[in-house]
């Protein structure tokens, strides 16, 4: 019964010309909804939220950010054939302050990681991240390299992963629609859904303890 109602909610999200059945990762979103619920966040509370989310999901301005090959497919997405202007995403901003979503197109390496992190920090809330291509997801073909970051989610939180090497522009449009569905679940009058920071915090605590122990040993 519980699951049924969850399904209904994900189903209720309206994306033009895309039905619930057309999307593949429904289960994931349902789990996401459930997780939010369990943590005490109610979903779809008011009409005002609906309006805000409608605005936000329909006007996702990407940051022009590309490190390698996938950037070319991002350009294709902006050009005549695939035309992401149809969805209102063509206002690519060069300044991170004005952008809503950063497409991490391409490999992130050690030297680039702090730059990407700073870029993410410079963006204004609400901000979203899409890992575009296998390099950004996991290191991809360069997994065995000494200088590659194994997935951009080691540096910044990611909302949507789009696999491929490089993914087709169509895949990117699909990913953007998934992002739109995710945005439509947000609630404005409380905190926007944050990634679960617990494991990071625990890891940090452990590190600290370790350091303390190490310091103690030194003494």
């Amino acid at each position: 019964m519980e699951e049924r109602s969850l399904k209904m909610e994900v189903k209720d999200i309206y994306i033009k010309n895309m039905k619930y059945e057309d999307f593949k990762e429904n289960e994931y979103l349902e789990e996401y909804v459930k997780e939010l619920r369990d943590n005490g966040v109610s979903i779809f509370v008011s009409k005002i939220d609906d309006i805000i989310n409608w605005g936000r999901s329909n006007s996702v301005w990407p940051l022009t950010f590309a490190t390698s090959c996938c950037g070319i497919e991002f350009m294709c997405l902006g050009a005549a054939r695939y035309d992401f202007a149809r969805f209102g995403w063509e206002v690519t901003r060069n300044s991170p302050r004005q952008a809503d979503v950063v497409f991490v197109c391409g490999t992130i390496v050690h030297k680039m990681a702090p730059v990407l992190k700073r870029l993410y920090d410079q963006m204004a809330e609400p901000k979203y991240v899409m890992a575009f291509g296998s390099c950004a997801i996991s290191g991809g073909p360069f997994k065995s390299s000494y200088h590659t970051v194994m997935g951009v989610d080691q540096v910044i939180p990611v909302d949507v992963y789009i696999p491929g090497c490089p993914p087709r522009p169509d895949a990117m449009i699909y990913g953007m629609m998934q992002l739109a569905r995710k945005i439509k679940m947000q609630e404005f009058f409380r905190l926007p859904s944050q990634p679960d920071m617990k494991p990071y915090a625990e890891a940090e605590q452990k590190e600290l303890k370790k350091e303390e122990v190490a310091d103690g040993n030194d003494e």
Binding site: T67, S68, G106, T107, V109, K111, M112, V115, P141, F142, S144, S145, Y146, H147, T148
Partner: peptide, 21 residues
Amino acid sequence: GYIHRGIEKMSETYTYPQILH
């Protein structure tokens, strides 16, 4: 170096058809 992926070092452990990719 902001996109240095160490392809040359990686290739030393890859077979030739793998290097092609």
